[in-house]
Amino acid sequence: MNAIVKSPFAWLLKREYWESRRGFLWAQVSAAGVILVITILGIIAGEVFRARMEGDTSVHMGGVNLNAMLQNAVSHNTAQLVGALDMTLLSFGFIASVVLFFVVFFYLLGSLYDDRRDRSILFWRSLPISDTGTVLSKVVAAVIIAPLIATVVVLAGYLCMQIVVSVWFLAHGVNPFGLLWGHWQPLSVWLHLLVMVPVNAIWALPTVGWLLLWSAAARSKPFLWAVVIPIVAGVLNLWIGLLGLPHIDAQFFWGDLVGRALLSVVPASWVAPSELATHGINFVQGDQLAAISYSAMGRAFALPQMWIGAIVGVALIAAAIWFRRWRDEA
């Protein structure tokens, strides 16, 4: 263990964290903080309205009606209460996923470009580090480190929310300890998010490879190369189709080529539309997590898209390593 922590690769990962902790950590903390603050403001506003007039004053917490939750708590409607708690955790998870997508997308695009632009690559390359190690550290930071940090922040955000709601419950004379803190089912939801990290990681490989490739290869404006090329290709393909000439099926082109090249870093984007259609994300009733259940994750690995994408992703990462090694800055 100690040998791993002290290996040069661990230091490469640490460097990535130092450089990008603003995105990896603080963006997530701010997003969770915003949810908490909005909830607290909502509770206060609700209390103020309640004091002014009797009637239906609903307080929302990440899409969950807190008043209903309080009622459920009082009437011991455990299933409803736990569903609400699950939903709370998933709200944090959803926001974290959106933030994670943007952070990771731009992190990858800049990771092999920014140090070429400001010439600090010359410092990194004066050290005994292989280019393969450098590029792989960016891959691991993007698909493992950043998502793990996000997942931990989700749990922390959820626990803070529990504290906020507990105080509110206490203010209404409801004991939160048995009700809120006695239900650890949301932890199993969180465990799903954690187990999903490696599934997301493998699914993300084609996008990771595509963005790293342009980050390593572009002399300037990697964003334009990475984003404009697939879109222009898609439009051309569409136009050729309109002319009645042989072209690639549009759904395949946008979904399996462009989509996988640019959007596979969206967490849980491997969830097939059919899975969503069958199960939906219906958290309040019973099978809350069908779409991202462990068996759904297993089914994702049976998709040819998963494996073909991974192979293409690895090839693109290899190309990025080659460019990193031989791209000659004049």
Binding site: A10, K14, R15, D118, R119, S120, I121, L122, F123, L127
Partner: peptide, 22 residues
């Protein structure tokens, strides 16, 4: 290679820790 090729975001102790590590 040149003056000022150290990455601008790094701190003195981070730079030392990193070089010591690799």
């Amino acid at each position: 290679a040149d003056v000022a090729t150290l990455p601008r975001w790094i701190r003195v102790n981070e730079a030392i820790d990193f070089v010591a590590g690799v």
